[in-house]
Amino acid sequence: MARFLLRRLLSALPTLLVIATLAFALLHLTPGGPFDSDRTLVAQIQRAIEARYHLDEPVWRQYLRYLNDLAHGDLGPSFTYRDTSVNQIIAQGLPIDLAIGGCAIGFALLVGGAIGLGAASRPGSLRDRLPMTLAMIGISVPSFVIAPLLILIFAMRLHWLPSGDWVGGSWRHLLLPSLALALPYTAFIARIVRASALDVMGNAHIRTARAKGLGDTAVLLRHALRPTLMPLVSYLGPALASVLTGSIVIEQVFGLPGVGRFFIGGALNRDYTLVMGLTLLYGALIIVGNFVVDLCYAWLDPRVRLNR
């Protein structure tokens, strides 16, 4: 187990290096620089700024300098937000994204799982068809449509929840964004769980359990639940990552100071360090997500060995 953890940790490093290199190369290949603007600056000032951010050095030196900073856990200073480091931006914005994302995934798991199991218990009934039709709509409608709709209903009409005006720290501000983010995942999870549960209930080993004279509850909990969850686990890894990237849109709609809007702003302003830092952050989150999935698999399924 310890060897597996160590190996996975080490194998994540080259992946991150590749991500960093690609992000660096793409950004420097993109025309325009962080300090190009319509107004032409005095040449002296322009040079002074470039020297401050080491942009006057050859690209390979900048690359090595960046890697060196990375190795020390420093993502560098933001080019656009003066006197702010990328580390600070992430430290401020990420908790908000994690809160929304965590709430969204939690909601999606509980509600989607319950709907899926309910549908599977009576396939073909109204309890199955109605939620599954809604789920199909939920999957198809993008979040930038769902979010304004939610605002329209819950904020503008019913005045139950605020539509934006984030002033820091109120859970009421996080409810609508979490819900908007959660709906497509809820729908997807409901469909996955339904399909999986129906599949598992037809398995031969479920019949064996019933042949022992076990009650429905024992059959469900002891024999059907775990295999039903397996496809969900493999879906959750990528979903965890995409919940965080998906929140970019939600942040914009609800005006939340998460990491996502810096990502867009950074890309538009050629804020090299900010974009590279956030790309690495998302990469790391995906790696962590997949790692957690592997651990869950090994924990749930005795046939999976971690030592390989």
Binding site: N203, A204, H205, R207, T208, L214, H223, D301
Partner: peptide, 15 residues
């Protein structure tokens, strides 16, 4: 396929 792959033989035999 008649045995549950997720449970130990003991669990399945004794339940």
């Amino acid at each position: 396929s008649a045995l549950n792959p997720y449970l130990r033989i003991a669990t399945q035999m004794t339940e």
